[in-house]
């Protein structure tokens, strides 16, 4: 933001008297913001790949041979939970807890019902990475709901 202001101030004289400063300043700031967004979008695929091609964040759930350290229990009365407002509130809280990018992919898939291929294309990531993020979202939601809803008796 600071370089946008500097650019605005140094160019100010050439616009003297011709334009409402505020409008113009807002305009150039917007342009800068658009540039920043474009740059972020352009850089995103690379950064995305770096941030993980696997789902190592859940390694702690498994032993060295890949078996559950603690086998997941069945959830009691899941269908009944769907009818409860408190359950939906708990689910919403769990969704909000997801990292923003993971949540975005998950909601594109489950809420908007987009195909994985469409989501990958939209976000400029590989199919494999999409699957990893979706798996990550489901694992995180599973743990969150277990902790905040189904684990409570």
């Amino acid at each position: 933001m600071q370089d946008a202001l500097l650019a605005a101030l140094s160019a100010e004289s050439s616009f003297a008297g011709r334009s409402n400063l505020r409008t113009w300043l807002t305009g150039i700031l917007k342009h800068k913001i658009v540039d920043t967004i474009r740059r972020q979008v352009r850089d995103r695929p690379a950064a995305e790949q770096e941030s993980g091609g696997d789902d190592g964040d859940f390694d702690a759930l498994f032993d060295q041979r890949g078996h559950w350290e603690e086998a997941p229990d069945a959830w009691q009365q899941p269908e009944g939970s769907l009818q409860q407002k408190q359950f939906l509130a708990a689910l919403e809280a769990c969704l909000r807890d997801l990292p923003e990018r993971t949540a975005r992919v998950f909601m594109m898939r489950e809420h908007l019902g987009l195909e994985t291929s469409e989501i990958c294309k939209e976000l400029g990531v590989t199919a494999t990475h999409c699957w990893v993020m979706l798996h990550r979202a489901r694992m995180a939601l599973r743990l969150c709901l277990e902790e905040n809803w189904f684990g409570k008796t």
Partner: peptide, 11 residues
């Protein structure tokens, strides 16, 4: 079962 339930729950 939980993964399937998650899908239904978001819907």
């Amino acid at each position: 079962a939980q993964f399937q339930f998650l899908r239904a729950a978001v819907i």
